[in-house]
Nucleic acid binder design. Sequence first.
DNA 1: TTTCTTTTTAAGGATTTTTTCAGAACGGCG
DNA 2: CGCCGTTCTGAAAAAATCCTTAAAAAGAAA
Lengths: 224, 224
Amino acid sequence: MNILIAEDEVSLANAIKRILEQQGYFVDEVNDGLSAIDYAKTVGYDLLILDVMMPKLDGFEVVRILRKDGVNTPILMLTAKTTVRDKVTGLNSGADDYMTKPFDPEELLARVGALTRRTGEVIVDSVKFADLSLDTASAELTCGGETVQLSRKEFEIMRIFMSNPKMTVTKDRLLDSVWGSDSDATDNNVEVYISFIRKKLKYLNSRVSIKNIQKIGYRPEVAE
Amino acid sequence: MNILIAEDEVSLANAIKRILEQQGYFVDEVNDGLSAIDYAKTVGYDLLILDVMMPKLDGFEVVRILRKDGVNTPILMLTAKTTVRDKVTGLNSGADDYMTKPFDPEELLARVGALTRRTGEVIVDSVKFADLSLDTASAELTCGGETVQLSRKEFEIMRIFMSNPKMTVTKDRLLDSVWGSDSDATDNNVEVYISFIRKKLKYLNSRVSIKNIQKIGYRPEVAE
DNA sequence: TTTCTTTTTAAGGATTTTTTCAGAACGGCG
DNA sequence: CGCCGTTCTGAAAAAATCCTTAAAAAGAAA
């Protein structure tokens, strides 16, 4: 579920972003009306959250332009003022809901929930391999009924394995992709994390194990 | 699977990057045409995604130059404009597919999938000879139903034999290719490794054996 | 802050690969 | 046949690589 926030007050935008990300949404953030239009037209979001007051182009204008161009994404407007006239203008211009600042995180989530539910079920995309399923939003790894929470790095490593199940992944590749090419992490960092992951796979009783091929790399393997 | 995005609007590039990474692709990102050429020529990508409108060098030019230089990587062009002329120019210049902004993430993934599948799902190339198959990613040697894991050096030796099945390979050549020209390994090292490999071929029940030609070298041979 | 989680670092042990070496086996030739 | 250089192979030593654990450091959350 992808959400775009357009809000010129960066710290507020960040706060909203964090709240939403905690709920598993993917959030992009822009800080003015023009960018909002670019993004909204290019990326298929499930919801737009627009501040009324923004540089370059205000929220009302953004909504009007988007609707004119055939973008039907639900829109939640934010405004500091609570005048009736604003509210009317907002809804007339094509927004779906309206919320005044300051607001309670609970309220935000409730409204976001209402607007996103409308477009259909929450899509939790996940990568699957053999008896494993890795939820890319929450980084939870599931096998049968059991589920474990992966840390950030465990998750990134596991995603690489599960997305390329037939490929042998070198340590260098993992260091590059997970730690970054300018990091000074060593092979041992990879080894430690492989060890962490193996422990969790064991706990899950998964048929998948991580095989090492000396001097070459690692590869997921399915038992039987 | 590695993808390069060349798109001058950084945050849009990031959005695309995120969508692709969610699916397990590895994504690099550059923001102008010149860098795109540098990267595409240096790193072996499986797909390039190019914006038409870019600073320094536009997407059409990038495609033309890359194709002229023998880069055959599939290319997906992005453009804001939907004119027929652009489309024709794009495909004429050597791009493989063409997508107009705005686009839906689903559509992006579908097109990316189509273009990357073409080059082969997961690139597991293997060298085959008689009843043997050597997986170059995992260094596993298979015959019939059986599979054995080769060590690094066993693998390199075996690959040389299987890629030149009719050739007699000298010990010097093996020492050079596998141990390196500045190593102080002796002929006996080769002999020991040939012995290791023969043991594994026997275990696999392969029709292939490694024949020695005195004072000259070794050659794979197929029984019957 | 304090507490909890994640990540890094370090070290010893386990495993695998590679080298070394010695004796046996082979092949050509007088 | 016996000789001699070459090749084969088993076993053990050495080296490289990998695993695991624990504790310290860093980072995030309360």
